[in-house]
Design a protein around this nucleic acid. Structure first.
Lengths: 267, 267
DNA sequence: CTCGTCACTTCCGGTGAGCGGAAGCATAGT
DNA sequence: ACTATGCTTCCGCTCACCGGAAGTGACGAG
């Protein structure tokens, strides 16, 4: 497992090689030595050395005191531009929702076949949770994911449910037929719930955020402890109020992915 | 001004060209057309086309409905890794500080000769402010910047004060001699204040966050309206308490820049 | 102190990936 | 219909890139 994800494709173009070096750091945030990067990308050591050197000089990577590499500040700064407007508008509203409910709240969009968490507000008293900002979770196992699926175009939902559904805990709903019914209910009621489907001990509820141009743009979620699962709906009025305010402030969600890459795996 | 920052150096290496394309998006977050990118980097249109195409395919850039390019989600995700640990630990504590004070609070580090804002918590009732997460401001004109300068190694301070100091508002302190005295006072008192030095209408106060390994790691700041300038010190006990807790939780600030690139501008 | 090991860094000549001029397409405006 | 503008594709020449190999330096065992 340590070296099969590696060694995949030593890409032909220089650009591809540079990007494959960056990809190394997507899998885990642990700093890597030059040799590790070389091994994981399949590039020759001297090639890796040169490319990594250029990346470091620019600020895309930086070295820790041991000489190991990690993602650099300049890349972080650059990344902040992506969807900055959305986060700047949504953040204070998430903040208000947190103040009202004293629960972890977050906002997620669909990116291909996963839910991508784009922002979150939480205090020190926090519930065990699986998601993190910039992280992804399966659509079918999270409250935000169910909302994103239920309100998106039907073909998206079809495409997701056609694939085998990962089971993160014994409580994860993985039966496509049952899920389809559940999603219909989500549309009817206007919210989704997931109890311990992605992590034991936590439950969540989510409502849709629509775009002015039509269609769903994002989902607003709230996380609570397992014991509160039956009272999650109490938070709905606050959540819906905030969702409406986000809709009113954000014109469009520039972040939203353009669609699922159709499974064009041709043999 | 629109085309002198451009056209600088069409860099020799492919890696450099790729990075110069990314750099285009550092200056403003506005989406660019292919032609604009080509013009701003000085690369030939067909070259730009190919490189941008690879970047888009990977997810470093994405196209809006008009076909224009902006920073892509994958780059944002990747950037989240940089200093993720620090932000994950500090965020809930910032959150607590916000709850206590009901004021915008933020955390910044020194990156070369500027203060870089790495996180912030604020509500809808906000004060006019210049900084944003991922953004930079001059060290000498902000409360966090003064703290970062005052508690850092002396040569850093010397280097900064040796350069001409930008005046953002009529209230900005730009006299090196006076600033040096001010910084001495900051060390003595353990906090810094800046009133309308970077933006009219807002005042801020900041305290240092030290690293376990010694030396200053970051600064914790609080922003209030001009009218509150005389009562900023009231927030000090809360700020110091939170700063101590951040120090206790964060081993080291991996984000911290290694130093000022010495002005080795050789003619 | 010496030697071996390991990880990184530098060098350099052959070669294929990249460059960019130019031609081919769309789309929009007159 | 014609022009203008901006994007995409093509292709042969060439120069920047590749990677084996040699050099460096830090560490640790003997």
């Amino acid at each position: 497992m340590a070296d099969d994800a590696a060694r995949t494709t030593p890409p032909a173009s220089v650009t591809g090689r540079v990007l494959s070096i960056l990809s190394v750091f997507e899998q885990s945030l642990a700093p890597r030595s030059l040799t590790e990067i070389s091994a994981e990308t399949g590039l020759a050591l001297s090639t890796t050395h040169r490319l990594v050197g250029e990346l470091e000089e620019w600020g895309a990577l930086q070295r820790d005191p041991n000489g190991r590499y990690q993602i650099g500040l300049r890349l972080w700064e650059l990344g902040q531009h992506a969807g900055r407007q959305v986060r700047e508008i949504a953040r204070p509203l998430l903040q208000d929702l947190y103040s009202l409910t004293q629960r972890t709240v977050h906002i997620a969009i669909r990116e291909n076949s996963e839910a991508l968490y784009i922002d979150r507000v939480y205090g020190t008293r926090r519930v065990p949770q699986a998601s993190r900002v910039g992280g992804r979770l399966p659509l079918h196992a999270t409250a935000v994911g169910k909302v994103l699926l239920a309100f998106d175009e039907p073909w998206v939902c079809d495409a997701i449910l056609a694939q085998p559904l990962e089971s993160r805990t014994p409580h994860t709903h993985v039966d496509p037929v049952a899920l389809r019914k559940e999603l219909a209910l989500v549309v009817e009621r206007g919210y989704a719930i997931a109890v311990e489907e992605v992590r034991e001990g936590s439950a969540s509820i989510a409502v849709p955020i629509f775009q002015r141009t039509g269609g769903i743009g994002a989902a607003l979620g709230l996380v609570a402890e397992r014991g509160e699962a039956d009272s999650l709906e109490w938070h709905l009025p606050a959540m819906r109020g905030i969702a409406r305010r986000i809709e009113a402030s954000v014109g469009a969600f520039p972040l939203r992915s353009l669609g699922i890459r159709p499974t064009n795996a041709r043999p």
